[in-house]
């Protein structure tokens, strides 16, 4: 299994995981995470697990991402800076996110 494609996929996994961890833009992090799931699905296909690849593509990249995006729409898109700016509480102000 030491073929180049798997190595590339594994490297991509680490890169996407790090990107999802360190991005300050939550929406971007979630999209990158969705990419991470897709790479994982491809890797599982390479490891002869087609059922898992199918499920991971539908659940990890599809369902989970949509749930995250919904939550971000209902909260806020950016990570807060450490402690200088205090947000107003309340349900109705949302950052308008054009996509």
């Amino acid at each position: 299994m030491s073929d180049a494609l798997s190595l590339v996929l594994l490297a991509l996994l680490v890169v996407t995981a790090l990107a999802a961890t360190f991005s300050r833009d939550l929406l971007a992090a979630v999209i990158v995470f969705s990419g991470y799931s897709l790479v994982m699905a491809l890797l599982w296909q390479r490891l002869q697990a087609p059922d898992l690849a199918l499920t991971e593509a539908a659940v990890g990249a599809g369902v989970t991402t949509v749930l995250f995006v919904t939550a971000i729409f209902k909260t806020q898109r950016m990570e807060e800076e450490g402690g200088d700016r205090h947000r107003r509480g309340g349900a109705n102000e949302k950052e308008s996110v054009e996509k």
Binding site: D51, L54, T55, A58, V59, G62, V63, V66
Partner: peptide, 21 residues
């Protein structure tokens, strides 16, 4: 073939989410 109840249900749900989007 690859697939089964949950896999299909997940694909269906992903399709519904696309519809919603």
């Amino acid at each position: 073939s690859p697939g089964g109840g949950f896999q299909g249900g997940a694909v269906m749900a992903a399709g519904m989410f696309l519809f919603a989007a």
